[in-house]
């Protein structure tokens, strides 16, 4: 199996850019600039790194419901943003809902770009470059596999219950009703797996290998690094200027 020749952002540049972009977003208070940053800076980066689907899911499944709730509460029920007389300005209430939602999109998006765009074969190396070692490195690496595995295991328990006729149908409500029954088998599985896996890591000296593998030289492009750093610095400066 050949090694990937994928050239990516250097972990240190990735880390610094993320921090700068988050600080910039926390200072951001102009809806137009935030919208611009999302549409013109972030969206193309999501497209380039093939993570647009994940971002789309985040916006639709998490931010959109929050936005609707905020809009109803501050734009309609209260009719004003926090700190103003209720009913004094529905438009400002709606603006507040948009502002919070955009901030969520930007912060979430920056985190997604930072982590989801790391090529799998560079994941461990990136964590190592961020200063994680030993058991912490194992925890970080495991964090990227535990969620898909947990989700899969949950699905498998549901399948087992379907197969035994314990779930009347495949409707969403029936699936939600099964949730309490998933907890105990999931916990049992997690404990058993943790025990077996640690023995496996010990047997094959995998933690040691993980450390050795991550200390391999990291190939990244100067121009990509400079571009990412420039975007984040620009974003920070713009927001500091518009405070």
């Amino acid at each position: 199996m050949p090694y990937s020749t994928h050239i990516s952002v250097h972990p240190k540049v990735r880390g610094i850019s993320t921090i700068l972009a988050i600080i910039g977003t926390l200072f951001a208070n102009d809806i137009i600039i935030m919208l611009f940053a999302w549409l013109v800076l972030l969206i193309p980066l999501f497209t380039l790194t093939s993570t647009m689907r994940s971002h789309g899911r985040f916006v639709i499944k998490i931010v959109a419901p929050i936005f609707i709730i905020l809009l109803v509460v501050w734009g309609w029920l209260v009719g004003a943003p926090p700190g103003l007389q209720p009913g004094s300005s529905s438009v400002d209430g709606a603006r507040f809902a948009i502002f919070i939602s955009l901030r969520l999109i930007l912060l979430g998006g920056i985190f997604q770009l930072c982590f989801l765009s790391i090529p799998y074969d560079k994941l461990i190396n990136t964590f190592r470059q961020w200063g994680l070692k030993g058991n912490w490195l194992v925890v970080a690496a495991g964090a990227f596999t535990i969620w898909p595995e947990l989700k899969l295991r949950g699905e498998q328990i549901l399948d087992a219950r379907y197969a035994r006729g314990l779930t009347p149908d495949r409707k969403l409500f029936s699936r939600i009703q099964q949730f309490p029954f998933l907890l105990r088998p999931l916990l049992t599985w997690a404990i058993r797996s943790a025990n077996d896996r640690t023995q496996l890591w010990d047997q094959r000296r995998l933690i040691l290998k993980l450390g050795r593998r991550s200390s391999q030289k990291y190939h990244s492009s100067f121009f990509i690094n400079a571009y990412v750093l420039l975007i984040s610095i620009t974003w920070l400066i713009i927001n500091l200027l518009f405070i």
């Binding site: 690496a141 495991g142 596999t145 898909p148 077996d196 995998l206």
Partner: peptide, 10 residues
């Protein structure tokens, strides 16, 4: 499945 390390997503 417990003989797979769980440390690599691929």
């Amino acid at each position: 499945y417990n003989a797979i390390s769980g440390l690599s997503p691929t």
